[in-house]
């Protein structure tokens, strides 16, 4: 009998288990959607990051054009269910922690840029940024700096 590792992993309650691509894609998708409105500017910012991300473009899988389609398929289970956003974020962060602190910082800054793109900080967006900051174990000085700079960038 073949083991369904995905199911076993989910049932174990362990965190993580996403590939780097999947984790980044999930966080950026949630950043654009968590305020309940897919604002055109946030969507444009998210699509831009996804289309040009060195990580998402750099894998072998993207060369045959299937990576983004595969990620889109995998996220279908939760992407329209706001109650899933928190556990997915926590899992994505746990997965990214296995990569490097630099990756975590970079993805956090990209998420902040998306959240601030419409110039309105919804309370769910603030909660997401707090969650990312905590789960990605970011240095507070860096995180504060990122928020201040991206806020300034998106004002005009």
């Amino acid at each position: 009998m073949a083991l369904d590792l995905t199911e076993l992993f989910e049932d174990s309650g362990a965190l993580g288990g996403m590939s780097k691509d999947e984790a980044i894609y999930s966080i950026l998708w949630i950043a654009a959607s968590i305020d309940g409105v897919l604002d055109e500017r946030e969507k444009s910012e998210r699509d831009f990051f996804i289309s040009r991300s060195k990580t998402l473009k750099g894998g072998d899988a993207v060369e045959d054009g299937h990576l983004l389609a595969r990620l889109e398929e995998k996220t279908k289970a939760w992407r329209y269910d706001p109650y899933q956003f928190e556990p997915v974020t926590i899992n994505a962060c746990a997965s990214l922690l296995q990569e490097s602190a630099e990756t975590c910082k970079s993805v956090f800054v990209q998420a902040v840029d998306i959240v601030y793109a419409d110039d309105v900080l919804h309370e769910n967006e603030q909660r997401l940024l707090d969650l990312l900051r905590k789960e990605l174990r970011l240095d507070n000085v860096f995180a504060d700096k990122a928020v201040r700079i991206l806020d300034a960038k998106n004002r005009f």
């Binding site: 060195k54 990756t103 993805v107 990122a146 700079i149």
Partner: peptide, 16 residues
């Protein structure tokens, strides 16, 4: 200090 912060944050953003 703002210039320094911008360079640090934007370099990080565009790294991955």
């Amino acid at each position: 200090d703002f210039v320094r912060m911008v360079l640090s944050v934007m370099a990080s953003k565009n790294q991955y």
